[in-house]
Design a protein around this nucleic acid. Sequence first.
RNA 1: UGGCCUAUGGUGUAAUUGGUAACACAGCUGAUUUUGGUUCAGUCGUUCAAGGUUCGAGUCCUUGUAGGCCAACCA
Length: 559
Amino acid sequence: MAEEGKSLNFIEHIIENDLKEGFSKDELRFRFPPEPNGYLHIGHASSICLNFGLGEKYNAPVNLRFDDTNPAKEEQQFVDAIKRDVEWLGYQWDQERYASDYFEQLYKWAIELIKLGKAYVDSQSSEEIAAQKGTPTSPGQESPYRNRSVEENLELFEQMKNGDFKEGEHVLRAKIDMKASNMLMRDPIMYRILHKPHHRTNNDWCIYPMYDWTHGESDYIEQVSHSFCTLEFAMHRELYDWFLNQVYTPSKVKPKQREFARRNLSHTVVSKRKLLRLVEQGVVNGWDDPRMPTISGLRRRGYTPESIKNFANTIGIAKRDNLIDVSLLEFHAREDLNKKAPRIMGVLNPLKLIITNYPENQEELVEAENNPEEEVLTYREVPFSREIYIEQEDFREEANRKFFRLKLGGEVRLKNAYIIKAEKAVKDEHGNIVEVHCSYDPLSKSGSGTLESQRKVKGTLHWVSIKHAIEVEVREYDRLFTVAEPDRQGDKDFLEFLNPESLKITKGYIEPSVATAKVGDHFQFQRLGYFNIDPDSTKDKLVFNKTVGLRDTWAKLEQ
RNA sequence: UGGCCUAUGGUGUAAUUGGUAACACAGCUGAUUUUGGUUCAGUCGUUCAAGGUUCGAGUCCUUGUAGGCCAACCA
């Protein structure tokens, strides 16, 4: 079902045009084709949202197809992670396919190409082949094996398949044009010998097809109508079409490849190869480290599927180079979490506050809104007592009028509780404030309806009762890199721009209502930001990840 | 010294296909607020350059300029 009134991106224009020119809507079919050699990242999320979004818009099937033609790099664990991530985003694929499902068909087609004189076995080394390839500005040379007889080619190719040769001894090449301006058309390699077990076909094959030979034919087998990929494949289109034309039957759908620009995110890297380095060198704690721009990392960090999808839809799809600021991603996290995350009180940098006129052994429960954004408000109870923690930043001995928080002689409201007045700051021998003594107005209790409770005081602080607070571990994250484009800093390696302070682990104190929360649950720590519970949590210790802070206009004023 | 692609506010993306350049984020003002959050109102700012076609050009043409991609038995 097409959304109305929404402007179309260039991909949608292409589809609309095809439809207008008579392409049947029933034959629309898309695919998301990851290689299982790493985890999906935010850039893939854009591609997933594009393809599956198109599927939803046109009510067309979308296949999940693993491009698994290189057993040297691909693993089952990545297949599993990819499926988990796509599902988590909320998309359902029509069929789960693997390029390796088509190895037999591809092999048969290759034999046909040989018989037609359109493919040949080259027995040179990869260095020799590369040397003959020419350069972008000069034509290539033909291989001395280019005109082998069909019979010889057939025989050699079969021996390749049977495992009679070592890796690198022979390859199968398409016979196209060594002088083509598009270097991909200079007799591209279709098959190489690889004596490696494949995660699905084990040792059935020792020849493996190359990407170009595989991808378009796989699209064709699945009758994918529109095959979208990133811009670096633009030059491959000519070859994609050439291979397709060798096997195409007019009654069938001929897939159409179109290219869009990959999305770049500031202050990170969006490339599986580079992310792999971060993982392998131990810069981060795995692919799902909350600092990683992987889907798994973002999930663990506390991003919701909706926030990621909204982000992807907002940034759209186009063909020009781009650098999207992470703050836009963070905006979408806040926007979604603001609606969904229950509010709680937690203190990260505790300062002890004693309410001197509150009876020593007294405690009470105060009522707190779970989320002011709820249509029907719900409440919980939070324990209050004489000794509480507030944030260190929320108290100053002296401050100007712009400081809405607690200062000596000044008043603030304790959220959901009483209005207090700071009387005295107790210091240690170094002059650090270790305790604040306050008095409270017993008639000012929140929601009590008294005149005193309705007094307007400028500041409201969050707090926890020391006696009742739960101690938790809090992991706060900052951008992984100190510069916007770490992988575009001249000849310097992107690892030179790591932010040494990307992870800060501290102790926090939170209200007891959270004790029963589960891994993955989201919360807003009031006045601080959004947090969720990390899988590292145990029965005895909750671990929180900070997803993103609240918008903080005070911090801006302070600068 | 070739081929292909791209160029719209600070960022990202649109513009009913030649008809008033807009949406989101960021920024700035103000209002509301028991979160310096949210919400609301307002505001700043845009078509790479030069020619050409046209009543009219972000859109078409020409020439420049800038950036990206292409020489893995990777995808």
